[in-house]
Computed example of a mutant assay.
Amino acid sequence: MFEHKIDEDVSLRLFTEDDAEEFYQFTIRSKAYLREWLGWLDYIESAEDSANNIKSRLKGMVENGGYPKSFAIIYKGKIAGTIGFNDIHKTNRIGVVGYWLGEEFQGKGIMSKAFESLINYGFKELNLNRIEVSVAVENAKSRALPERFGFTEEGTIRQAEWLYDHFVDHVIYGLLADEWLG
């Protein structure tokens, strides 16, 4: 199984089908906290839904030539969240990042470590030229990541996402390989 150890406490690893129950329970525990910014939570109703999500992630690895696209963020042996490339546009060598972290894992630097590792992976292993992040304008915590790591704010897409009962605008951030590696 692929696992990238970042430090003594934090690693990124592939999800396995054995993670379905733990991931489901973790998602349900985190639901109230995550609901403010993630619009898909109401579609997770059982461990089987989490298992199908994991199968889709593993299929994405096959479609990506054997390279994983998404990872479980592991903190002290437990799933703390997830990070990965929601989309990879092979022709243009662009990866679009998505991530979330459970509330009880906030404020420990976990996501910063995972984010930096994913950016390195995208540019060095996947040979991407550009990495994008799209995040709700008012989601300050999620916006802090690309800002901290030198992404350029490139614009705003109005009413980019429906969140349960309202639309939210998204800000788009971009980072080029030569900006990161150079």
Rank of each mutant, 00 (worst) to 15 (best):
F2C: 01
E3A: 02
E3Y: 00
H4Y: 00
D7C: 04
V10S: 01
L12P: 00
L12K: 00
R13D: 05
R13Q: 01
F15R: 05
F15E: 03
T16G: 06
E17T: 13
D18P: 01
D18N: 11
A20D: 08
Q25D: 03
F26G: 00
I28M: 05
S30F: 02
L34H: 03
L38Q: 06
E45Y: 06
E45Q: 15
S46C: 09
S46Y: 07
E48A: 10
D49Y: 00
D49A: 06
S50V: 11
A51K: 15
N52S: 15
N53R: 07
I54E: 05
K55T: 13
S56E: 05
R57W: 14
L58F: 10
K59C: 10
K59Q: 14
G60P: 09
G60M: 11
M61T: 14
M61G: 15
E63S: 08
G66Y: 13
Y67A: 07
P68R: 02
S70K: 04
A72W: 00
I73D: 00
I74H: 05
I79E: 01
I83P: 00
G84F: 01
G84P: 00
F85A: 02
D87W: 04
I88N: 02
K90R: 13
T91N: 09
T91D: 11
R93C: 07
I94Q: 15
I94K: 15
I94F: 13
G95R: 06
G95N: 11
V96L: 06
G98Y: 04
Y99A: 13
E103H: 06
E103R: 10
E104N: 09
F105P: 08
F105E: 08
F105V: 06
G107F: 06
K108Q: 12
G109S: 12
S112Q: 09
S112E: 07
K113W: 06
K113Y: 03
F115L: 05
E116L: 09
I119A: 00
I119L: 09
G122E: 01
G122Q: 02
K124P: 10
K124R: 11
E125I: 08
E125Q: 09
E125Y: 04
L126G: 04
N127R: 08
N127Q: 10
N127C: 04
N127W: 05
L128Y: 04
N129F: 04
R130H: 06
R130A: 02
I131L: 10
I131W: 04
V133K: 00
S134I: 03
A136M: 07
A136F: 00
E138Q: 14
E138N: 15
N139Q: 12
A140R: 15
A140V: 14
A140H: 14
K141F: 03
K141H: 03
K141Y: 05
A144S: 15
P146M: 07
R148V: 15
T152W: 14
E153M: 08
E154K: 13
E154R: 14
G155V: 09
G155Q: 13
T156N: 12
T156E: 13
T156L: 11
I157F: 11
A160M: 06
E161A: 07
E161C: 07
Y164G: 01
Y164V: 07
D165P: 12
H166D: 13
F167P: 05
F167Y: 15
H170Y: 09
I172E: 02
I172R: 01
Y173L: 02
L175I: 12
L175N: 02
D178G: 09
D178K: 12
E179Q: 13
W180V: 14
W180R: 13
L181H: 12
G182W: 05
